[in-house]
Amino acid sequence: MNERVSVSSGSPWEPVVGYCRAIRVGNRIEVAGTTAMRDGEVVGVGDAYEQTKQIIKTIEEALQKLGGSLADVVRTRMFVTDIARWEEIGRAHGEFFKEIKPVATMVEVKALIDPRLLVEMEAEAIVSSE
């Protein structure tokens, strides 16, 4: 039986909604939808590139707490409020994942939970050993 280990986002909504930032079961890590919120503030208001960089840094922190790294990421999913900004978002994604090359999906959504948020991203990782 694989142990289930989770990392909290620290969000006040986590216990209300019933979720965590990331969870590891065996050698698999799943990272929940992550935005550019940091200490209750939106990082990079109006800047999709900066928001995406912050999101990936937050994902990296969660992976590290669970014994993983960005190098273990096999899939990312990006939810964006304006697909016309795909190049800004893709450039930031590429800066972190250029050599790793996970499978990636980017889709436009009507809105995110805060209108200042332009991007939300999920990640899946498989670590090499348990």
Rank of each mutant, 00 (worst) to 15 (best):
D72R: 00
I23S: 11
G67K: 10
S69Q: 06
V16I: 15
I29C: 00
F79M: 14
F79P: 02
K98I: 02
R21Q: 11
G44C: 14
F97M: 07
I83S: 05
D47K: 15
A92H: 09
N27Y: 02
M106Y: 04
H93N: 05
K101A: 14
R28K: 12
V16C: 03
V119Y: 02
R77D: 15
E87N: 06
T76Y: 01
E108F: 00
G33F: 01
Y19W: 14
V107S: 07
L70F: 06
S6V: 12
F96S: 05
Q51L: 10
V80Y: 02
R4P: 01
S128N: 14
A125C: 05
S128E: 15
R116N: 10
A62Y: 12
E108P: 03
V80A: 11
V74N: 11
I23R: 13
W86L: 06
E122T: 12
D39G: 07
Q51C: 08
T34H: 10
G68M: 04
L66W: 09
V109Q: 00
A123I: 00
G10S: 13
V7F: 09
F97V: 11
D72T: 02
A71W: 07
C20V: 11
Q51Y: 08
A104N: 09
Q64M: 05
K98C: 08
G90S: 09
S11Y: 09
E3H: 01
H93V: 10
A125T: 03
I55P: 06
I89S: 08
G44T: 07
S129H: 14
E50K: 08
S129N: 12
K110C: 05
R91D: 15
I23M: 09
A71F: 04
E99D: 13
L70G: 05
R28M: 06
G10Q: 12
V43R: 12
T35C: 12
H93A: 14
A71G: 14
T52G: 10
T34F: 00
R91Q: 13
S128Q: 14
T34L: 03
V25W: 00
A111M: 04
A92L: 06
A111C: 02
P12H: 10
A22P: 15
R77T: 15
G26F: 03
E95M: 14
G94R: 13
S128V: 07
V107K: 09
V107A: 13
D72W: 02
E130C: 01
R75V: 12
E41P: 00
A111P: 00
T52C: 13
K53Y: 08
V73G: 02
E41V: 06
